[in-house]
Nucleic acid binder design. Sequence first.
RNA 1: GUGGUUGUAGCUCAGCUGGUUAGAGCGCUGGAUUGUGGUUCCAGAGGUCGCCGGUUCGAACCCGGUCUUCCACCCCA
Length: 462
Amino acid sequence: MAKKPSIPKGTRDFSPAEVAKRNYIIQTIKKHFETYGFQPIETPSFENSETLMGKYGDEGDRLIFKILNSGDFISKVDDVTYSSKNSASLTSKISEKALRYDLTVPFARYVVMHQNEIDFPFKRYQIQPVWRADRPQKGRFREFYQCDADVVGADSLLQEVEFVQLYDAVFTDLDLKGATIKINNRKILSGIAEVIGAKDLLVDFTVALDKLDKIGEEKVKVEMMQKGISEKAIAKAQPLFDMTGTAFEQLEKLKTILADSEVGMLGVSELEEIISTVDMIGLQSASLQLDVTLARGLNYYTGAIFEVAAPEGVKMGSIGGGGRYDDLTGIFGLKDVSGVGISFGLDRIYLVLEELNLFPDSLDTTLDVLCLNFGKKEGTAALKLVSGLRKQGLRADLYPTDTKVQKQFKYADKRGVPYVILLGDQELTDGKFVAKNMKTGDQKDYSLDGIEEFSEKVKTEI
RNA sequence: GUGGUUGUAGCUCAGCUGGUUAGAGCGCUGGAUUGUGGUUCCAGAGGUCGCCGGUUCGAACCCGGUCUUCCACCCCA
């Protein structure tokens, strides 16, 4: 007996209704990417391992799905490596390819490989799935979509401002109110680490600081001490734990703390420029918030960093993130190309919209008109009518068999079809058809010679 | 990767200290209704209780393993 089929942990099937909702989000994001001047590219779902490994930190390497070599790969491994039982060194021998982990690193690789064909500054967007060998949770999958927009080859801070506006434009269009775009600057974090004399512990410091609103001040300090940051240094960083007030008030406090740090002050002035410009232009439905505890793990960020939190009350990790990276292409041999970009987490935005019931009802309608089938002669006439309606741009279909009318009606009802057409023997001889509005129950006759009248009526109701 | 949690009909879930033939609601199929769906009424189908093994006269229930779900870490979209 056949075993029940299953799909791997952290993956999902999508039903027609789910695909419709996902497409709605994708189309919305795509539309705004394009109105902001981004061009689409696509890259392979798997890359050479060396392209990906080491770009996301040790933790990231662990989460990259490795693809086994083809052929009799194990026989090519030397005995020393084989018997060492060291996963890392064995993996490099038996796996040369890996599934992409995000879209930013493959994009950097793309820019370097195509540098001679690209007109800089280059604004590209990319909507494709990525894979992570993470342990699944709600809103966390092993296969999920990222929707990225990046611009490389220019270092103007106006781009950061544009990205904030882009986030706002998409969320406004999706009717998602109250998302918080958190912003910080890596230079500020570097400056702080410098000022308190823990420069080489920057990553540990920021990772701990990032947890402030989650685990509280005391536990953050404990973690910092465990990582080897001195009590004195932590005491110096105390003002960070007491950050309150508006973004501008916080910036003033940072200026005092970071007075002796060149990078730190640069970070403050960058943030000040971005925030004040956004403030001047204004946002529609999202809000921009300075958050000095925002760290983001990815090591390649060098300037502004973004993270988008779902509206208050929705329990969901960040639904977007991004930042500026001054030298991502440097790893692949192309120096001095600054980039900045953002990402939308499609799957999480989906869950948020679902929870807040923000998907438009129209997504449920996948067919505008269903024509019932009354037999061979009537069916042929109906097919002619249906293809006429299709030419008018309506989503129209003919029930394929002449089963009981009751059954055909039930099908129409379940599909959520707004109009059902009846074209039987009597109608045929009269040269007309009957259209029934499934919502109101009203029925009306139309001439078979003038289907435009009917199709126009349907179109105005969609 | 660490600790915990979950799995019974298509879906949401009951199922007592281990004891005959494992239940409900919704959904599904058919009929009441041979040219009119949703409402109502009637009937029916559908389950090796996630999987493998163990304990027992006997296991959905106890034990071990495994897969899956969700949660907290880690990290992140």
